[in-house]
Lab assay of single mutants.
Amino acid sequence: VDNKFNKEQQNAFYEILHLPNLNEEQRNAFIQSLKDDPSQSANLLAEAKKLNDAQA
């Protein structure tokens, strides 16, 4: 993981990586967004979790 991520951002990265119901395309999009703007990690994680739950 890129060293410019802080602890919260790293946690978001790993959580998104391991959400079971996202397809690869969705997962990659969230990860790319996280890399583009790490400050949005909490929002991105919340969105990813919502999508993950919706696809459960």
Rank of each mutant, 00 (worst) to 15 (best):
E25C: 13
A48S: 09
A12Q: 03
S39P: 10
K7G: 13
N3C: 12
F5K: 10
H18A: 14
F30K: 02
P20F: 08
D37I: 07
A54P: 06
D36L: 09
E8S: 05
Q32A: 14
F13T: 04
E24A: 05
K35V: 11
N6P: 13
Q26C: 09
L51Q: 14
S41N: 03
F5N: 14
D37M: 08
D53S: 10
N43I: 14
K49D: 03
D37F: 06
S41K: 02
N28C: 14
L34T: 02
A56V: 11
N3P: 15
A48M: 01
L45N: 02
A54H: 13
Q10T: 05
R27I: 07
N21M: 09
A54T: 13
K7W: 04
E25A: 15
D53K: 14
S39N: 13
D2G: 02
K50A: 09
N52D: 11
N28K: 08
A46N: 12
L51W: 08
N3Q: 08
N52I: 02
F5I: 15
K49C: 09
L34Q: 03
N6T: 06
L22T: 00
Q32L: 07
A48R: 00
A46K: 07
S39I: 10
A12S: 06
N23G: 10
V1R: 04
Q26T: 06
I16G: 01
K49Y: 07
E25P: 08
P38W: 03
L45V: 08
L44R: 05
N21K: 12
N52W: 01
A48E: 00
A48Y: 02
F13S: 04
K35N: 12
L51M: 09
N23P: 06
P20E: 11
N28F: 13
D36V: 13
K35W: 14
N6C: 07
D53L: 11
F5L: 11
Q9F: 08
Q10V: 05
I16K: 00
E24Q: 12
N52A: 06
R27Q: 06
E15F: 03
E24R: 04
Q9L: 13
N52G: 03
L22W: 00
A42K: 06
E8P: 01
A42L: 10
P20M: 09
L19Y: 08
F5Y: 06
F30I: 04
V1E: 15
F13E: 03
K35H: 07
L19I: 02
L44K: 06
E24K: 11
A12I: 10
N11W: 09
K7H: 08
I16P: 00
S41Y: 15
Q40L: 12
Q32V: 08
V1D: 04
N52C: 04
E25V: 09
D2K: 02
N11R: 13
Q9K: 00
K35G: 08
A46G: 08
H18M: 05
S39Y: 13
R27S: 03
F30V: 03
E24Y: 09
Q26K: 06
F13N: 03
N21V: 04
L17D: 05
K4C: 15
F5A: 14
N43W: 06
A48G: 02
N52R: 02
A29S: 11
A56D: 08
E25T: 06
L34V: 11
Q40H: 11
H18Y: 10
P20C: 11
A46W: 06
D37C: 07
P38D: 03
N43Q: 05
L45D: 00
L19V: 01
N28P: 02
F13V: 05
A12Y: 03
Y14S: 08
A42G: 07
K35I: 06
N11D: 14
K7D: 15
P38N: 03
A42D: 09
L17P: 01
I31F: 06
Q10F: 12
N23W: 13
A56P: 12
R27V: 10
N11Y: 14
E8C: 03
A54N: 13
Y14G: 06
N3F: 00
D37S: 05
N28Y: 07
D53E: 11
A54M: 13
L19F: 03
A12W: 03
K4T: 10
D53P: 01
S39F: 02
E15H: 06
K50F: 14
E15S: 05
A54F: 12
L19Q: 04
F30Q: 01
K35C: 08
A46E: 10
F13L: 06
R27P: 00
N21F: 10
A29I: 11
K35Q: 11
Q55S: 15
L19K: 01
R27D: 00
D53Y: 06
A29T: 09
A54D: 10
E25Y: 12
K4I: 15
A46P: 02
K50Y: 13
E25I: 14
P38A: 06
A29D: 14
N43H: 13
Q55K: 09
E8K: 02
F13M: 15
K49T: 11
L34G: 01
D53R: 09
D53M: 11
K4N: 15
E24L: 10
P20I: 07
V1Y: 02
Q40C: 07
L17S: 12
N52Q: 04
F30D: 00
Y14A: 09
S33H: 15
D37Q: 11
E15D: 05
P20W: 02
K49M: 09
Q32E: 13
S33W: 09
F30G: 00
A46C: 09
N28L: 14
D36A: 15
P38G: 06
F30E: 00
K7R: 05
D36T: 11
D53Q: 15
I16S: 01
P38Q: 05
Q9R: 01
Q10H: 03
L45E: 04
N52F: 01
D36W: 08
A48F: 01
N23M: 13
S33K: 09
L51H: 06
L44I: 10
L45K: 04
A48I: 02
Q32N: 14
E47F: 08
D2N: 02
A54R: 13
L34D: 00
D53T: 12
S39H: 13
Y14L: 11
A42S: 08
K49H: 03
